[in-house]
Design a protein around this nucleic acid. Structure first.
Lengths: 142, 142
DNA sequence: GTGATTGCAAATCTTTTGCACTAAA
DNA sequence: TTTAGTGCAAAAGATTTGCAATCAC
């Protein structure tokens, strides 16, 4: 397997999150955390890993993405039934989803205001609020 | 098959939407449109249909729900990757999703305000804005 | 060494598809 | 009668699972 730079950084990062720094996790961590925020699917990461020369099974990609999510390093988004997206930006923010291309991106700024929260049943609390602005081509009649 | 009341109403309703009033569509239409707003999955409607004495195949349930959606009678929601919900309330509104029970309901009132829409690429327009308030049990650490 | 992690293949679950059959208009 | 709609079974995709092999610590 090819030597990818910045191993050290990622290894420290994973350990700080309480995760064992396996070869596969380090490689996926580099794909996710060394550049700007990303919105990826498991399939994407799998293909990308193989292209980068890191052999990982798809099952392990799912495993790693879910562990990263539980460790608070990723957020899983339901945008499209039938496919999960994982977002490396875990701060509170909103999304822009291009229906024609299935591309997802962060929305610049904080343009949504919650005026009032409805009263919730006892012992329940808000886990999070998802806002997705769905965009499509004007000429596309779908 | 059992005779269900209000056939006429639903038949007119479907025809007004440009849909042929087949036995299966009438039965599913009754489940969806004769009571208060509902949030259902295909599986739910399938089981419910069989319980009501209307034999429908699951493939037809999907077919019908999608046709209803294209005809503007339903809205399809991505709440949970891996399962589609269909909402009979097609007006602009927000959702409350109980993560522990996978129950979805409309949010009373209009508590979200969009302060500013980001500038979009040319020839694209907002299709819709989904807001989902995710709620979970306080004692549940998931 | 020991327990966590991985790989693989099979299983599961939701949704879609192809095609012959049926029914609405 | 004509064409849309249905049923079934099989296919397709995404994700999960079980278990033996492997690796991090």
């Amino acid at each position: 397997m090819r030597k990818i730079p910045n191993d050290k950084e990622i290894i420290e990062f994973l350990k700080a999150a309480g995760l064992r720094a396996t070869r596969q996790r380090v490689a996926i961590g580099q794909q996710l955390f060394l550049s700007e925020d990303r919105h990826v699917t498991a399939e994407q990461i799998h293909i990308e890993s193989l292209q980068l020369g890191c052999s990982v099974s798809l099952a392990t990609v799912y495993n790693v993405l879910h562990r990263f999510t539980h460790a608070g390093l990723l957020r899983e988004l339901a945008i499209d039934s039938g496919r999960s997206y994982f977002d490396t930006n875990i701060s509170s923010h909103q999304h822009l989803y291009f229906e024609d291309t299935a591309k997802l991106c962060d929305m610049p700024g904080d343009n949504i205001e919650i005026k009032a929260i409805p009263s919730l049943p006892p012992d329940t609390a808000i886990s999070r609020i998802d806002v997705i602005i769905r965009v499509k081509n004007k000429t596309n009649s779908d």
